[in-house]
Simulated scan of single mutants.
Amino acid sequence: MVKDNKNVELPQAEKPTVYERIKETLALASQLIIAAPMKLPPKVVMAARYLALVLGVLEAVENGAKKGGADED
């Protein structure tokens, strides 16, 4: 009996891209800063809020573009 030692990986289309990993990391960092129980400088908290807002808008635009592109086909 021959053993197959190949690694099982996700198909190429489902691997997260560098862009998606950066977006997820920034979203997580901004959420942690906003929810931090300690007192942080107001400028840091405001920057994190704006970053979370921008990432939310960007995600909504990307989802709308994906749905709109599927409808046009």
Rank of each mutant, 00 (worst) to 15 (best):
V2W: 10
D4I: 06
K6V: 02
K6R: 04
K6E: 01
N7K: 03
N7W: 00
N7I: 02
V8Y: 03
V8I: 09
V8S: 01
E9D: 04
E9F: 08
L10M: 13
A13C: 10
E14F: 14
E14Q: 13
K15H: 08
K15W: 07
T17G: 07
V18S: 13
Y19M: 10
E20F: 12
R21A: 06
R21T: 06
I22R: 10
K23W: 03
E24N: 13
T25G: 12
A27I: 03
A27N: 05
A29P: 04
S30T: 06
Q31C: 08
Q31G: 11
I34W: 04
A35R: 12
A35T: 11
A36K: 05
P37K: 05
M38Y: 02
M38A: 10
K39H: 09
K39Y: 00
L40T: 07
L40H: 04
L40W: 01
P42D: 12
P42F: 06
P42R: 02
K43S: 14
V44I: 15
V45H: 00
V45E: 05
M46S: 14
M46G: 09
M46C: 07
A47T: 15
R49K: 14
Y50S: 07
L51M: 14
A52G: 14
A52E: 13
A52L: 12
L55C: 04
L55E: 00
G56R: 14
G56W: 10
V57I: 07
V57E: 06
V57L: 06
L58N: 08
L58T: 07
V61K: 04
V61N: 05
E62A: 11
E62N: 10
N63E: 15
N63M: 15
G64C: 01
G64L: 04
A65M: 11
K66P: 02
K66H: 13
K67F: 09
K67E: 06
G68H: 01
G68V: 05
G68P: 01
G68I: 01
G69L: 10
A70P: 03
A70F: 05
D71A: 08
D71P: 05
D71Y: 01
E72G: 00
D73L: 03
D73K: 00
